[in-house]
């Protein structure tokens, strides 16, 4: 499709424009409504929390930095602004102040969201390759490098008679 015809097709008619504006307004309204609903029962980022003791506080902050936000894959729930992360922080907080242990909370989350919820994958059968591969690559690279170096060394020592004579000449400087 040429640029001109693209432009023609994408030019909105007045009716379409009105409905688009209406959709936009409705979208904004929905967005704020969803925001209002969303704030209930969740822990916002940096929201001050009260703990009974220091041990619980440490456990909470340790856990939220260990758990992954499953909808925003490269963030922990500690740093994520997603609604789901806020829900998960809330659940971790509740369970922590109710005296549940770190292991209990982690197993609660993995039972529902899988190992994926752990920001640092555990070392087990299906993740073994992931953990071992850097070292494997290092070994493979090292062995290859050694072989290349060794071959080069052996190649250097084998000069033909004419090469040796040429080398002599270069050394004396009378080329």
């Amino acid at each position: 499709m040429s640029l001109r015809s693209t432009l023609r097709y994408s030019r909105p008619r007045l009716g379409a424009l009105v409905s688009r504006v209406r959709a936009l307004v409705a979208g904004f309204a929905l967005f704020f409504a969803a925001g209002a609903i969303g704030t209930a029962g969740a822990v916002a980022i940096d929201q001050p929390l009260e703990f009974e003791n220091e041990r619980q506080e440490e456990q909470y902050y340790r856990l939220v930095q260990k758990l992954r936000c499953t909808v925003c894959q490269s963030e922990t729930i500690y740093e994520s602004g997603a609604q789901l992360a806020a829900d998960m922080r809330e659940r971790v907080y509740e369970m922590t102040v109710n005296g549940r242990s770190e292991e209990e909370i982690i197993s609660y989350m993995t039972r529902r969201y899988g190992d994926y919820v752990l920001y640092k994958p555990p070392f087990q059968l299906n993740t073994a390759l992931l953990w071992v591969s850097p070292f494997l690559l290092l070994i493979i690279g090292g062995v290859t490098w050694l072989q290349v170096v060794r071959r080069r060394q052996s190649a250097e020592t084998e000069l033909t008679e004419s090469e040796r004579r040429a080398l002599e000449r270069f050394r004396r400087g009378d080329s």
Binding site: I37, V71, L84, D87, M88, G114
Partner: peptide
């Protein structure tokens, strides 16, 4: 509305 069952059912989106 507060995703209570949502968390238990492992809902994320």
């Amino acid at each position: 509305p507060e995703a209570e069952a949502g968390m238990d059912w492992g809902v994320y989106a």
